[in-house]
Design a protein around this nucleic acid. Structure first.
Lengths: 170, 170
DNA sequence: TTGGAGTGTCAACAACGCTGACGTATCGTT
DNA sequence: AACGATACGTCAGCGTTGTTGACACTCCAA
């Protein structure tokens, strides 16, 4: 337990936003918001035979076409057995295809097929629609803050991966 | 698919933050940040025989002592069978106790035991420490924006529940 | 007294994590 | 050419947490 009630008027800036109570509210907001965040894609997926894991795989293959299995493993933070189960169904259903690496033939480079791209777009559209509405309602300054706090919440390694990924995407 | 590239200079304020690319980055930030968000409690839980679901139950019982099972069900958004499995282990291990309702004897009001409060505190401290660090690093304005966007991301019903909960907690 | 609400529980199942172990192809370096 | 390391796939088994469906009990309120 650290400072429950930080002393006020330290440097002119109020530190009331660091009280345990405020932090707790932030935690709860994160919990409820994440539910909303995944709700729309989940609704689409539940009809098909896919789950959230498939969505994540599609998302990152779309984001980084030609990425290798090992790459995806690192990004998703799961075991290869877990990812493999998902990838296999995506291969079987022809949503993703793997091409043997040109330079290193051990590597499998992953690409979305037309069909995979279509599903990814459907999921992505639903999720982005909610994000867009939230962003629009909150305004650019709030969005800036949102992103800042989220990045500060990540583990350092994740943050590095995240920022490296941002460079790719314009 | 909505507006990929909103026309600029609409009302003086740039709408660049609403591009699909920016939204996509926000989605990814949410994904990575949530991983960080749960990482610390997860680490503590994995040693014990509990999981994330136990953490959530402890959190909300702590937050709203005396809450009923039905209440908790609504907040957590799971089925009673799922919650019951978790609650049973918490009862068995004497982390949570249920008292029959005084007014309505069908209801079970949930309270943390000393032991439960201790574990809740341990988990909560870990999670709050990360939030505090993130908040501090980002600053009060960013935190304000963070909260605004999160609330805008919630489903309307969740938002109502969330705001009702906030009133309780000072 | 009867219907419905709040709760507990049994059984079965699915999604998605995990570990451990093993196999194969390929690469890079002696 | 041989060998160890790397990238990947796969089998087997298991745990947590979610789901549905069904049934029973208690209790409140009309």
């Amino acid at each position: 337990m650290e400072n429950s009630k930080p002393s006020t008027s330290l440097s002119g800036e109020s530190l009331l936003y660091l009280t345990d109570e405020q932090l707790r509210k932030g935690i709860e907001a994160m919990f409820f918001a994440y539910r909303g965040f995944t709700a729309d894609p989940d609704r689409i997926l539940e009809n098909l035979d896919y789950g959230r894991a498939h969505h994540r795989a599609l998302h990152f293959v779309h984001r980084s076409p030609g990425t290798t299995v090992g790459n995806l493993l690192a990004i998703l933070g799961v075991t290869k057995q877990s990812l493999n189960r998902v990838l296999r169904t995506l291969f079987d259903d022809a949503l993703v295809e793997a091409r043997v690496g040109k330079k290193d033939k051990r590597e499998r480079h992953l690409y979305l097929t037309e069909k995979g791209a279509a599903l990814e777009r459907e999921l992505s559209d639903a999720q982005r629609a909610r994000m867009r509405a939230a962003y629009r309602a909150a305004g650019p300054q709030a969005v800036q803050g949102f992103r800042t706090v989220l990045e500060a919440m990540m583990d350092p390694e994740m943050l590095r991966q995240f920022q490296r990924m941002l460079e790719g995407g314009k």
